[in-house]
Nucleic acid binder design. Sequence first.
DNA 1: TCTCATAAGTTGTAGCTACAACTATATGCG
DNA 2: CGCATATAGTTGTAGCTACAACTTATGAGA
Lengths: 157, 157
Amino acid sequence: MEPARWLTTREEQAWRLFVAVLMLVPGEVEAQLKRDAGLTQVDYGVLSALSEAPGRAMRMNELARMVNGSRPRMSQVVAKLERRGWVRREPTREDGRGSLAVLTDAGYAQVVAIAPGHVAAVREAVVDALSPEQLDQLAGISATLLDALEARRSGSS
Amino acid sequence: MEPARWLTTREEQAWRLFVAVLMLVPGEVEAQLKRDAGLTQVDYGVLSALSEAPGRAMRMNELARMVNGSRPRMSQVVAKLERRGWVRREPTREDGRGSLAVLTDAGYAQVVAIAPGHVAAVREAVVDALSPEQLDQLAGISATLLDALEARRSGSS
DNA sequence: TCTCATAAGTTGTAGCTACAACTATATGCG
DNA sequence: CGCATATAGTTGTAGCTACAACTTATGAGA
């Protein structure tokens, strides 16, 4: 264990601001989804991913990767969406273990109905709030952070 | 209601990457705090804020602003920290309504013990993963997003 | 074929979070 | 003063999240 390397003033400032963003921005976007449709960001991600998938269907596993969630979480989320009639589950034909989450017509209609409001919220909270340069920077920073995370997970296991 | 303005490919790409960051990065940092001390990011924020406050004490209200949390949440968090012996609550002298959260000696020792590991996790997950330019960009972007949020809250109430 | 390891999903549980309702004190105004 | 309103904190509850344990199926190898 090396001696602790503290953060410089500049680094700490950046971190503090970023933490505030991490705390507040997701809440802003989720508030709209919750108000308009009683959905979570993850719920919306699932419905949205299914709506764009071939056959409007996906394996649970794939769905989990798609929305950056764990498998247990997918089970819970899909169970909830199933109770509301927006998704149904079918056994998989090729793999006896798997489940296939399928978007129902009601679920598709729901996505179509919600999407505009969600996009507007995303615009208001992030996209339109930043300059085009900042948005590009944000994309680059995000990609870098995700790569680093991925590298850490493969490397130091 | 204006017609929905969709996201361009570039905007959507940036948003998707950013959502992944919002989902994954907090979890990375919290995992370390949870592992080493059974603490949440907010818990740590509270202890840390108290440790730097004059008299190692703060009003609940002020504490809430400090860590970007709601007052109900502070009550819960401080109650938990109090059960663990790291914080105690006192009535306020000037204002009969208020509570004052005070960091105990054990709580201060806890902060001192944890801080280096936390800083190392923050470095690994964010600060050292980015170039100095990117870190500055991130600070700017975060400030912009927070300003926009603040403006929305004052303006459109 | 039999066995073991691995993978896909589910379930159970404990802890965290958000939101509304409630108590108590303080402040402003007629 | 006396009432109305606003503010500080707490509590209760419902829903979400993380993690471990479990079930079932696949696949690889003796």
